[in-house]
Design a protein around this nucleic acid. Structure first.
Lengths: 228, 228
DNA sequence: TCAAAAGTGTTCGCTATACACCCATGG
DNA sequence: CCATGGGTGTATAGCGAACACTTTTGA
């Protein structure tokens, strides 16, 4: 068997990374899916992913996948679960280390992969290949949990944004509604936002803000909680 | 090469599960460690763990490790992170799927493994083999986070316990102090505890409680938060 | 007899929540 | 001129934190 160059005394599973890439279009949370070009599940939509290389960590692998699909070299990514069901891949034993990524849609460029790719609203996601439905559901759960401890929302917005945009994002992620005025005051009180000075503001426009990273890391050290 | 029976076209990493087993002795949080009997790191303390079998999920593997070390067939276990640094094992590429387990110390029986094992208080843990120091630190972080969403504490206590014991446990996990009276009232208010009726209570003893699982699942569905 | 432990109460301040008001803009 | 959107204000209820009181137990 010429091709099988790597031999082990005991069987080893294959290891992949899968990446749940989230974006925000201004009103809804989106997820990036790719269409499978090969069997199994050929023609079905799936999460971007691939085999882990022997010289890279799983995080590096996930970042590599991310760049292949979105052109982004950096992004917020977080490992959230490893899926190990022995039968999750019909071909052979494959375990996958799953990450979710938060990207700014406007920064994304079309992937150079041949595979067809597309952004789907969370309530329009089709049935996915392998156990990717479950992986996606778990990712949504995790991002909803994470949002209480970290301002994950900011990773999905452009550098400058209005409070209304931020609120829409939080509502999209958590699938709830907030009172506009209370949300505004809470953000003011947290002091996480810095108002952008717009010198020549002829027309009355909503204030633009930036995320105050210094204040955030200070709060995080003390152990804060974003209540919603 | 007779021994190497399993061959692949591409290199595959080894996959192990490691288990951070927590117990509570009434005043301090403990973790179970085993002494390595073989190189590398022979003689050093490490987390219990082992290779993943091809026919079991990682969770089953972690439960198997748990039983080998503690005799427990069931316990609360939770996967919290997968460690994939290419150099984390000096022999070959090994990734490990890490779980933490919460067990009742009084239910634990000595492991039948030859390896020496011992319970260590968190502030007395020696330097560990591989990257297990980091794994343990991450586990502690995760349990502290998890305690806000799930009453993980109850898994560490006997079926019946006093409020004081519960408070000591929370204080040990979170490394904080609570006001005894406020803690008591909070627990009363949450209605998570059911008082055990002790018929012949001649002497004045602290009330014994049981964890009210029904109330908990009801609360969890609504999305509750244990604030501390 | 006295200190420690355990159950119960009270007060204060913060904040989540609900809802009102004012002003500028643009049709 | 008026509907809409955006910034600011106010009142209330609930809860967390701080702290007092009382009783029982065992040394």
């Amino acid at each position: 068997m010429e091709k099988a160059k790597y031999s082990y005394k005991y069987p080893h599973p294959s290891v992949t990374t899968d990446c749940v890439i989230f974006g925000f279009d201004g009103s809804r949370l989106k997820v990036l899916l790719v269409e499978r070009g090969v069997e199994p599940f050929k023609g079905k939509w799936a999460l971007p992913g691939g085999f882990l290389r022997m010289d890279e960590s799983a995080e590096q692998g996930a970042l590599r996948e991310l760049q292949e699909e979105t052109g982004l070299k950096t992004a917020y990514i977080k490992q959230f679960h490893t899926f190990t069901d022995p039968d999750r891949d019909p071909r052979e034993r494959v375990i996958t280390i799953a990450y979710y990524a938060l990207v700014r849609l406007q920064d994304v460029v079309a992937g150079d992969d041949a595979a067809r790719a597309g952004w789907f609203s969370l309530d329009e996601v089709p049935s996915l290949a392998f156990d990717h439905d479950r992986i996606l559901r778990t990712a949504i759960q995790e991002i909803r949990r994470q949002i209480h401890f970290e301002p994950v929302g900011f990773e999905l917005l452009p550098p400058e944004f209005t409070v209304k945009e931020l609120q829409l994002l939080y509502e999209a992620i958590l699938d709830v509604k907030f009172d506009r005025r209370n949300f505004y005051k809470k953000m003011q009180h947290l002091e996480l936002l810095t108002q952008v000075k717009t010198s020549a503001q002829e027309r009355r426009q909503p204030f633009l803000f930036r995320f105050n990273a210094a204040k955030y890391s200070e709060l995080k050290q003390k152990g804060f909680r974003l209540e919603f």
